[in-house]
Amino acid sequence: MALDHSKTQLNSLGFAKSPAETRVVVAMSGGVDSSVVAAELASQGYDVIGVTLQLYDHGAALAKKGACCAGIDIHDARRVAEEMGFPHYVLDYENIFQDAVIDEFADSYLAGATPVPCIRCNERVKFKDLLQTARDLDADCMATGHYIQRKMGAAGPELHSAGDPGRDQSYFLFSTTPEQLNYLRFPLGHLTSKAETRALAAKHGLAVADKPDSQDICFVPNGNYASVIEKLRPGAGEPGEIVHLDGTKLGRHEGVIHYTIGQRRGLGIGGLSEPLYVVKLDPDTRQVFVGPKEALSTRMVPVREINWLGDAPLDSQAEWHISVRVRSTRPPQEAILRPLGPDTATVELLSPEEGVSPGQACVFYETEGTRVLGGGWIWRG
């Protein structure tokens, strides 16, 4: 199956020239998605350059099974480039990644938030420094293996959800700016299943055709966030009290970093007459507040650092009737967005959500259709 084409464009990437005259840098993580993008574009005759970011010490990364941009992934990306006959470069972004992503992740956790480092990585590393590298290589565009669609609208390129709702990555790409969107391409966004991607990999004989998808945050491959925070910020796991919303002290904990909003299991308190959930974290007093499930329900969500992708300015009207996602695992639901300025707003959920957490993203969508209108970061208010 070929990549997405438009009958009004000379080539599949939207340029009025032949593929051979179109240079495209492909961000290659070493997984099947970006490998398929690079192989398919190379087979269509594009001037492809593969670039892989080394985000860890190479030797240490080899031990991190399932981690993105680790040693084995660099090897896999290089092998695809060799098989398909296009140049491939590995760039050392370890310091940039540490400064732009990992440090903020640790500090956010210490502040009682639940950060989403994958969004910051796209925003501050892949779609910033790597995108500039692609420009420096005189590329016409940069392509990635993300499952999201770029469509031309009346006012220019628009961001849309993927053809496969189960693989849609729009939640993690809401901060893509209009300028970046002009330069980016997402050739897999229209596919309706991962099976199609793997079939394309098999068509090109790629060794990564059956490679498992990466799981968890790339630098936390075992999912143990607390151990990573303690390593990055020694002494972060200071003990404190577990307190019921009614003021009753129920026990002690070994560090706020071990808890997230909405957590029920592993609270370290027993003999309860009702199930309790983490409803608030106070890193200043080192207290973990718990309460009944209904205490998690939220209707009003303060949002800041908004990246707006609508045609009219965000604050050009008093309210917007949209759909939002407050977690990557939840479907969009109807809401009212009330701007407080060019990049801050309050979101009113028409149906209460449970476990809305500071540090997570709130992503905006059209109520009808697939267009992504941007998003922002949830905070305490």
Rank of each mutant, 00 (worst) to 15 (best):
Leu232Gly: 01
Gly381Pro: 01
Tyr56Trp: 13
Gly163Phe: 10
Ala81Ile: 01
Gly375Lys: 02
Ala199Asp: 14
Ser12Ile: 13
Thr346Gln: 14
Leu131Ile: 04
Ser170Val: 06
Leu188Glu: 02
Ala70Asn: 12
Ala312Asn: 10
Arg330Leu: 14
Lys64Glu: 12
Ala207Thr: 14
Asp282His: 07
Met84Thr: 07
Arg265Trp: 10
Ala27Leu: 11
Leu137Glu: 05
Leu314Thr: 06
Thr248Lys: 13
Asn11Val: 06
Thr177Gln: 00
Gly85Val: 07
Leu245Lys: 09
Leu13Glu: 02
Glu366Val: 05
Lys151Ile: 11
Ser193Asn: 08
Cys362Val: 11
Asp92Ile: 05
Glu230Ile: 12
Pro212Asn: 05
Val356Gly: 01
Ala143Ile: 01
Leu173His: 00
Phe186Glu: 01
Leu337Tyr: 04
Gly145Cys: 00
Phe105Glu: 01
Asp33Trp: 03
Ile322Asp: 02
Glu294Lys: 11
Arg371Ile: 03
His88Pro: 06
Thr144Val: 08
Lys7Asp: 15
Trp379Thr: 08
Ala61Leu: 05
Val37Tyr: 07
Val116Met: 11
Cys218Gly: 12
Pro239Phe: 00
Gly291His: 04
Ala335Ile: 06
Arg371Leu: 07
Pro302Asp: 03
Pro157Glu: 00
Val228Phe: 12
Glu368Met: 09
Lys64Gln: 15
Ser316Phe: 04
Glu241Trp: 05
Asn307His: 11
Thr260Gln: 11
Asp4Trp: 13
Val80Lys: 03
Ser29Trp: 05
Asn182Trp: 06
Val303Ile: 15
Pro331Ile: 10
Leu41Gln: 02
Lys151Gly: 03
Gly255Met: 11
Ala60Gln: 15
Leu245Gly: 02
Leu281Asn: 03
Glu305Lys: 13
Pro187Cys: 10
Ile269Cys: 10
Gln169Val: 09
Asp99Trp: 08
Ile257Pro: 05
Ile261Pro: 04
Tyr225Lys: 14
Pro165Ser: 02
Gly255Trp: 04
Arg330Phe: 10
Glu319Thr: 09
Leu314Val: 10
Val228Thr: 14
Ile378Asn: 01
Val26Leu: 02
Gly255Cys: 06
Pro178Ser: 02
Met152Val: 07
His321Val: 13
Lys249Cys: 09
Val301Asn: 05
Ala162Gly: 06
Ser214Asp: 11
Glu123Met: 12
Asp129Val: 14
Leu206Arg: 02
Asp164Ala: 15
Ala318Asn: 12
Met28Trp: 00
Glu104Tyr: 08
Ile74Thr: 09
Val363Ser: 11
